[in-house]
Design a protein around this nucleic acid. Structure first.
Lengths: 216, 216, 216, 216
DNA sequence: GATGAATGAGCGTTCATTCAT
DNA sequence: AATGAATGAACGCTCATTCAT
């Protein structure tokens, strides 16, 4: 009971942190203000987390735990690659809207003064999806769904690049603006169109073709 | 003459700023150190720029001026869309390596405490390439190079998403790590492979196909 | 019985406090850590002692209670002054080693932010030995062991100065270093030498001499 | 001219620091308050000194520079050992009164949380006087002024112990109280008496004697 | 104009003390 | 009574910005 109260408090602190971090960035976020907004004293915050960086990391982990579920669920039991892609795209759209801040957190680590942790974080965060994507692309290739001369890892990389950019386009200010500029002011109200067009874009890439490219 | 001297000094200041900003991020960059490294007094710096943010903006503009040339040059006089894409990909690879800092600057604005300027910056930065891409995709569509049911703006968006992610993969720490995880430790030494695979990925998207996608 | 349990607990708290205070000094000692190390809650600690300063005072008193026995025992029943001095010196050596922390506590009050209590503490701590020393020096003087023109109180002061410096030299970091510098790296393994030389130094001071000093 | 102004400012900062440190101890001294009292901003203080510890060290050095002159001057050109001792005692009396704070600074390092620097500081501070004293005691011994069976280093140690205790007795609160308790309330107004008695105390120690001590 | 010393608000972190349970 | 989670004032230090020279 006490435990439950503590846990809900902890989550409230994390959520507040995520809200502040995703609004102001790591450096500009003020720990004292986070504590006040979360309704606790700084002391409590420093009881749970040993430093601001540590606190940010905890917020990040909390965000990623939610995000990784999204991918996991979207990949359940499907067979055809385009169907899988469609599920992922829709998952991204839903998730990015629902957990705007979580995604902004993810984006936060790719810039600013968090360079020092780049290698560790990337390994921790990207390894799973990199492996999953590459594996199901390889599988798709074996089943003739993808051109035989494609490198599954690179294709996984391109695919993920499209997904994360889309994700940020629904959750990070700058990317959202860019999204509107590229696709029109009403693109945020037209999720279906985005799904369709991206699938068209992927379709051919993910569909066996005989053509070969010749480079000089 | 005096003007010229000032101009070269100004550029030196901007270059120093870009170097520092792209290394440490906006918040952690110390204006006094920038001034010292640039060989000027802080007073001069504050004469040219009214605040740190303003200075960052100027550095950003300077970076983008260089970057925009890259796109412009890559688009000169070419006709076939895949050839154009190839030129752009190679330009991105060359540019990202040569002007690592400039690209890091660009990435810097997409996160952190720079939210307030997102709309203005996006409009300023993305409008041109958004228009250029959409136009030549529309042209390509008219000439039968791209499937007739594609939305040129969305396709331009997807195409640009692939390019900027690639750009960051060559110039920003986190994205570079992600790149290695997805594509292997030696991917940075294998630019040709990246070009080929991305072209394969794009090829079908950018090549007329009769298939249509049916969504439930 | 309950009382007894409390008493032993109290002593454990005090001993822990003494250990921490003598290691880190008054300010740097953390009450919460003291409580944890002593195996009690801070609440208990603040039940017994109304503040950190108050707790330090209690620790100090506890230390001094042990230290005062040392002097007392060393002065039992002896007659000749040099024999008494020898007993005291040996007592200091033994005590300083055995109760390093207690002595460090004593030294702690002579500096730092404890100025406010100087007068009270000095009166409490020094009065006894000041009186004892002065009295037996007076006695010694009457019996011709000390030059007749000596002021027993001043001589007691000088004698005690030598003893406390020696005490600190065996128990406080800085004084120990100084001891090594003055007397050689192996002086801490050579207690007998210290005894002998200090007795030589005192011998003449404490032995009647005819000489008189003439100051201009 | 500007240089001069800066130097005087620097000294004012150091003097303020010495005043605060010797009043409140290292930990309780507030850098912001020191800055305010010195009439500068914290920024200036941190321009000159890289941390609080560094600032304390600078204050200490400043204190010691003055103190070492005292010893140096007192040792100029004298021959007879007791005359030298007398000069030193008088120097200590004068110096301790004039530079009360400087001496308190010296005492500050012997306790509290400055343990980490004990070895370095002791070496730096004590080495010189240890060597000087030992040398002139050795010289005195050769000339028959001191008993031939004395160890000059140990005797130097005892002599210095008497001097520093006296020094603190004129400059540190606790030691001053102890001084009054041992020697009477009016001892601070009776410097001559202290000189005379200490010389008497030393006289025999520093004067050749035939007696030998026999220990069991 | 140019300088760069000086400013001082602001923030991360600690820890003595309190008080609800 | 005993606990120890929670408090929040306090302080060391940084650095964007100003302004006297």
């Amino acid at each position: 009971m006490l435990k439950k109260l503590e846990e809900s408090k902890l989550i409230e602190i994390l959520e507040t942190g995520i809200s502040e971090f995703s609004q102001y960035g790591i450096e500009k976020t003020n720990i004292n203000i986070v504590a006040k907004k979360a309704g606790v004293s700084v002391g409590v915050l420093y009881k749970y987390f040993k430093s601001k960086d540590d606190f940010f990391m905890a917020c990040l982990k909390h965000s990623l735990a939610v995000l990784s579920n999204v991918i996991g669920e979207a990949l359940q039991g499907e067979q055809k690659i385009l169907a899988r892609a469609e599920k992922l795209i829709r998952a991204v759209q839903k998730n990015a809207r629902e957990h705007e801040n979580y995604n902004a957190m993810y984006h936060e680590i790719t810039s600013g003064s968090f360079k020092k942790h780049s290698a560790v974080l990337a390994k921790e965060i990207e390894s799973i999806s990199a492996k999953v994507y590459a594996e199901f692309l390889l599988q798709a290739q074996k089943e003739g769904e993808i051109r035989s001369d494609a490198d599954p890892r690179l294709f996984a990389f391109f695919f993920d690049s499209l997904l994360i950019t889309l994700q940020f386009s629904y959750s990070c200010d700058y990317y959202r603006e860019r999204f509107l500029i590229y696709c029109g002011e009403d693109i945020l109200d037209n999720d279906e169109k985005v799904v369709k067009e991206l699938l068209k874009f992927l379709e051919s890439a993910f569909t066996t073709s005989q053509s070969e490219i010749k480079h000089a």
